[in-house]
Design a protein around this nucleic acid. Structure first.
Lengths: 341, 341
DNA sequence: TTGAAAGCGTTACCAA
DNA sequence: TTGGTAACGCTTTCAA
C-alpha cells in the first residue's frame, strides 16, 4: 500500500480511503490511486485491515456435517447472502459433538468472526458462556431458541413432527414405527420425538417403545430400521422417519423384500429433499424451507452485526402428502384375499 | 494478553510463548500464565497473531457448489485433515462461474489464506496470474493438472469416462446415449466427454451427436435427458450419465414410463454416491475415491505450506458393475415378442 | 479533500 | 529462560 501511495503521490491514508470510502476522495486523485493499484497489482492485506478496523468481514458457520444434503442446502442459503454482502464464510463441522462445537466456537471467536450461525440450541454451558462473553451476535438455526435475547431462525421441530404423526393417525394408523435421529447428541431429533409422542398421547394411542429406533442419517440405517420393524410379530402399518435419507433407505428395504409401499406399509420422511418427490412412490414428507432458512439466518445475523436488534423468525413447515402413505384400511384390504365372484 | 502478563507477573512475550511454544517456557511460569489465562477468560486475537506471524492458519477452498453431494464429500475430506492440523477452512462457492472464481481467489488471497484448494484446472488467465504472483501454494482437485510446477490431487476424468464407455461397448451396446455436464463451464465434464468419444472412436463406433446431451446435475435433468432419448425413433440401448444424480433421474424416468432397466435400456452413472448401491436395480457406475481425494489434497497442500515440494497424486477410479447394465443381446431378446409354442 | 501519526494485539528478534 | 520492543499493514482520528 505504501508503494501505491508513493506511485500515486498521495498518503497511505488516501489509498485506504479509496479502498473503503471512495466517495471521500476527489475523483481525480481516486483515479490516480486506482491506476497505481492496477499498475502495482496491489492486493490489500485484509488481515491487517481487520485488525485495525476491528471487523473481519467473516462469519463462522458450524454445522454437524457438510455431507448431509439438507444441511448443505441451508448452508448454501447462508453463503448466498454472505457473498453478496462481501462477507466470508468460515465453516466448521462438529459431527454432532458438543465438545468439538465448543472448540470451534472458541477458535472462531479467536479468529474474530463478526458473527456466528449455529445449529440447534443446546450446547455446553462453557460454549454458552463463551458466546455471551464475546458479545458477538450469533443466530441459531434448525431449532427455535425461545429464550429472550437469543436470535434464531427456524421452524419448530416438535410441531413439524407432530403434524406428520397426526396425519398418519388420521389415515387410521395406530402402530406407527418411528425412526429417530440420535437423540443424545441432537436436540432437533429430541424435539421431533417429543412431537411424535405428543401426537400419540393426544390421540390416546399407546406409545410402544419397541416402535422407536434411533439411528444416524444414512440410507443403510433406514434399511436396518425398516428390516427390524418388518421382523416384528406385529409390525407397524406406517413408519415415520425423521429424515428423508432414512425414509429412502426404508423404502428401498421394502422393495428388496417385496413389501409394497404404501399397500403393505406407509412411509413418511422429513426434509423434503429433491429426491423425495422423484422417488416412486413419491415420498410423503415434511417440507422444510431449508434454503430460505439459511438466507434469513444470514440476513438476521448481518443486521445484528450492523447493530440491529436480536431477532427471531419462526418459519412454517408443511406436511406434503404424496404416494408413499395410504389409509390403513386400504392396506388391509389390498393384502386381504379377495374372494372370487 | 497484557492483562494476563501483568496478572502472571511476566511479559507479553512470555505469554505469547506459552501459547505458541510452551516448551520454551519453564513449567512453573507456564503454569502461572495458564492460570492467569483461565482466570481472565483470555481469548487470543488470532487476527493480530496472523498479521505478526504472516501466517493465517487458514486454507481457502473453492468449489462449484456445496450442494452437490459428491463435492460435499471431497470437502469433508479436506475439512477432516485441516481440523486435526489446526487449520481453518474458508469456503467459497462459484457456481461454475470462472468470474466468481477469480473474485474468490482474489479475496481469499487478500484474507491471507496460507493455501488454496481449487476445483478443476482451467480458469481465467487473470486468476492464474494472481495465483502465481501470490506465491502461495494451491492444489487442484477433480482433475489432474499435468503442467510441471502445479500441484494436483485427482484422477483422470478422461480415462475414467473412457473405461465406462468401453465397458458398455463390451456389453454389445453400439448406440450409447451420453448425458454430459455443462462443458462450457466445467472442464471435468469436457474431459469425460472426450474420454467417451475416444472410446467410441477406438471401437469404430459412430459418434452420433444426437446421442449427446448436456445438463447440469439434477434429478430432474436426468429425467429429461432420458425422456428425450426414449422419444427418439432409434433410442440408445444404453445411457451413460456423467453423474449419479443424473443417472438416478434417468432411472426414475424409466420407471415412470414402464421402461425396464436394464432389460430395455442399460444405465450407468459416475461418482458412486451412496445412493447408487442402494437403488434397485443397483447402479453401475464409476467409483471415485472422493473422500480420500479431499484428504490427500489437504495433506499435500499442508506439506507445501510447510515448505515441501509441489506434488502430484493421481488416484485411480474403478468401473463398478452392478445391476443397471446388461448385455445388449439380453435386451433385444427380452423385448422381442416370443412366439408361442 | 488530504496527511500525519497513533493505534490494532500479536510475534519474533535481540539482549540480558 | 525471560523481557523489551520493533515490526506486521492496515484504519481512523485529528489537523491542516
Amino acid at each position: 500500500m505504501a508503494d501505491v501511495a508513493t506511485l500515486a503521490g498521495v498518503s497511505v491514508a488516501t489509498v485506504s480511503r479509496v479502498l473503503n470510502s471512495p466517495s471521500l476522495v476527489q475523483p481525480a486523485t481516486r483515479k490516480r490511486v486506482q491506476a497505481a493499484m492496477a499498475r502495482t497489482g496491489f492486493l490489500r492485506n485484509a488481515i491487517a485491515g481487520s485488525l485495525a478496523a476491528r471487523r473481519s468481514w467473516t462469519v463462522g458457520v458450524i454445522i454437524p456435517t457438510i455431507t448431509n444434503p439438507i444441511l448443505a442446502e441451508s448452508t448454501r442459503g447462508i453463503a448466498d447472502v454472505l457473498d453478496t454482502r462481501g462477507y466470508h464464510l468460515l465453516i466448521g463441522t462438529d459431527d454432532y459433538s458438543s465438545d468439538r462445537e465448543l472448540e470451534l466456537i472458541r477458535t472462531f471467536l479467536e479468529r474474530q468472526v463478526d458473527g456466528l450461525v449455529l445449529t440447534g440450541i443446546t450446547r455446553k454451558p462453557q460454549a454458552e458462556r463463551l458466546l455471551r462473553a464475546s458479545r458477538r451476535p450469533f443466530v441459531t438455526t434448525w431449532e427455535l431458541d425461545r429464550r429472550r435475547g437469543y436470535a434464531s431462525v427456524s421452524f419448530d421441530n416438535g410441531i413439524a413432527a407432530r403434524s406428520m404423526t397426526e396425519t398418519l393417525l388420521r389415515l387410521g394408523h395406530r402402530r406407527i414405527g418411528f425412526v429417530s435421529g440420535l437423540t443424545r447428541t441432537n436436540d432437533r431429533s429430541r424435539a421431533r420425538l417429543r412431537g411424535h409422542r405428543a401426537a400419540l398421547a393426544a390421540a390416546g394411542t399407546p406409545d410402544d417403545p419397541t416402535l422407536i429406533q434411533e439411528m444416524s442419517f444414512t440410507f443403510e440405517n433406514g434399511r436396518k430400521a425398516m428390516a427390524a420393524f418388518l421382523a416384528m410379530a406385529n409390525p407397524p402399518t406406517a413408519v415415520f422417519c425423521v429424515s428423508d435419507i432414512l425414509a429412502v433407505g426404508a423404502r428401498l428395504e421394502c422393495a428388496d423384500r417385496g413389501v409394497r409401499v404404501p399397500a403393505d406399509v406407509s412411509i413418511a420422511g422429513f426434509d423434503d429433499l429433491d429426491l423425495a418427490s422423484h422417488l416412486r412412490p413419491a415420498l410423503t414428507t415434511v417440507r422444510v424451507p431449508t434454503y430460505q432458512m439459511g438466507r434469513l439466518a444470514a440476513e438476521v445475523l448481518l443486521e445484528m452485526i450492523g447493530g440491529g436488534p436480536v431477532r427471531k423468525e419462526e418459519l412454517q413447515t408443511e406436511v406434503v402428502i404424496r404416494d408413499s402413505t395410504a389409509p390403513r384400511h386400504s392396506a388391509s384390504e389390498s393384502s386381504a384375499v379377495v374372494p372370487g365372484p
